[in-house]
C-alpha cells in the first residue's frame, strides 16, 4: 500500500539546478559585478606581470631624469627622484594589492572566529566579547593606525597584521548575527542532543552555512584595507622607500601638485578609486546572488 501511495504522491524530487549554479548564473548576469571582477584581474596582471614587459629601474634614483613630463620613453613621466611613474605604479600596486588582500582576509578570519564564538556561547561570554567590539568600533581605526605607525615603522607583514587587527570588528558583528539565527536550527539541536561538541557545531555547521556572509564581508574588507593602506602611506607612515604603494605615491605626488605635475597624482589616485570600487561592486554582486540562493 505504502509503496503505491509513494509512487503516486512523491514522484518529484525536484531536479532543480544546484544552488551554486544558480548563484553563478546570477552573478554573471550582474554587469557591474563582472566589470569589477575584470578591473581586479587587470590590476593584478598589471602589477605582477607588468614589470616583465615594461622593464624599469625601481631601485636606483636617477636625478638627471627627475620630474619629466609623459613622453614615449616614460608614458606617465617620472617622479622627483627619477623613477619611471608607470613602473612605479606596478611596484606600488603589488604592495597595495598584497597588503589589502591579506589584511582584508585576516580581518575577516578574526571576525568570523570572534563573532561565531560569541554568538554561539551566548550569555555573559557573548556580552563581554561584543562590548569589546563596541569599544573598538568607538575608536576610529585611523587614529589607532597613526599611533602605531608613529611608534614603529612597520614592514609589509607588520602592516598586514596591524590593519587586520583594527578592522575585524565589523565582520565579527555580522558573524555574530548570523550565528544567532543558525544556532537554534534543528540540525544544531540534533547534533547537541546526540553528544556532538560545541566546536563541531561551529566548525562544521555554523561557519560553512555563513559562507555567503563571510565572502561578502571579505570583499568589502579588502576594499577598506586598500584604502587604509593608502591613508597610512599618504600620511607618510607606509612601507619604506624604495618600496612604495599607491597611497605613498599619491602622498609624494601631492607635494608637486602645484607645479602642474599632474602625472604624479592622477594615475595613482585613479587606480585606488578603480580598485576599491571594483571590490565593492563584486561584494554587492555576490550578496545579491547569495540572496537568491538563500531564498530558494
Amino acid at each position: 500500500m505504502s509503496t503505491v501511495v509513494e509512487s503516486q504522491f512523491e514522484p518529484r524530487a525536484l531536479v532543480a539546478p544546484s544552488p551554486g549554479r544558480v548563484m553563478l548564473r546570477r552573478f554573471l548576469r550582474n554587469r557591474v559585478a563582472i566589470a569589477g571582477a575584470v578591473v581586479i584581474i587587470l590590476a593584478v596582471v598589471f602589477s605582477f606581470a607588468g614589470p616583465l614587459l615594461w622593464h624599469t629601474d625601481q631601485t636606483h634614483t636617477d636625478l638627471t631624469a627627475a620630474n619629466l613630463a609623459p613622453s614615449a620613453r616614460h608614458p606617465l613621466g617620472t617622479d622627483a627622484v627619477g623613477f619611471d611613474e608607470l613602473g612605479r605604479l606596478m611596484v606600488g600596486g603589488r604592495t597595495s594589492l598584497l597588503i589589502g588582500l591579506s589584511a582584508g582576509i585576516l580581518a575577516t578570519v578574526i571576525g568570523t572566529v570572534w563573532g561565531s564564538v560569541a554568538g554561539y556561547a551566548g550569555g555573559w561570554v557573548e556580552a563581554v566579547m561584543m562590548r569589546i567590539v563596541d569599544a573598538g568600533i568607538a575608536i576610529p581605526a585611523l587614529f589607532i593606525l597613526l599611533v602605531i605607525a608613529a611608534i614603529a615603522q612597520p614592514n609589509t607583514a607588520g602592516l598586514v597584521l596591524i590593519l587586520g587587527l583594527v578592522s575585524w570588528l565589523v565582520p565579527s558583528r555580522l558573524m555574530r548575527a548570523e550565528t544567532l539565527s543558525l544556532k537554534h536550527s534543528d540540525y544544531i539541536q540534533t547534533l547537541r542532543a546526540i553528544g556532538g561538541s560545541h566546536a563541531r557545531a561551529i566548525v562544521h555547521h555554523i561557519v560553512p552555512n555563513s559562507v555567503s556572509t563571510i565572502v561578502v564581508a571579505v570583499t568589502f574588507q579588502i576594499a577598506d584595507s586598500i584604502l587604509l593602506v593608502a591613508y597610512v602611506s599618504y600620511l607618510g607612515l607606509g612601507v619604506k622607500s624604495p618600496d612604495t604603494d599607491w597611497g605613498g605615491m599619491l602622498s609624494q605626488g601631492l607635494s608637486q601638485a602645484y607645479n602642474g605635475r599632474w602625472w604624479l597624482i592622477v594615475p595613482a589616485g585613479l587606480v585606488i578609486i578603480l580598485v576599491v570600487c571594483a571590490f565593492n561592486a563584486i561584494g554587492d554582486g555576490l550578496r545579491d546572488s547569495f540572496e537568491v540562493g538563500g531564498r530558494r
Binding site: D186, Y187, T190, I194, G195, V211
Partner: peptide, 23 residues
C-alpha cells in the same frame, strides 16, 4: 561522559527544512 551517554540517542525533529544542514 556526557558525549558517550548521548551516543545511544536518536533525534527526529519537526521541520524537514531546518533538520538537515543543506551545505
Amino acid at each position: 561522559a556526557r558525549t558517550a551517554l548521548r551516543s545511544d540517542i536518536g533525534v527526529v525533529l519537526q521541520d524537514p527544512v531546518s533538520s538537515l544542514d543543506s551545505r
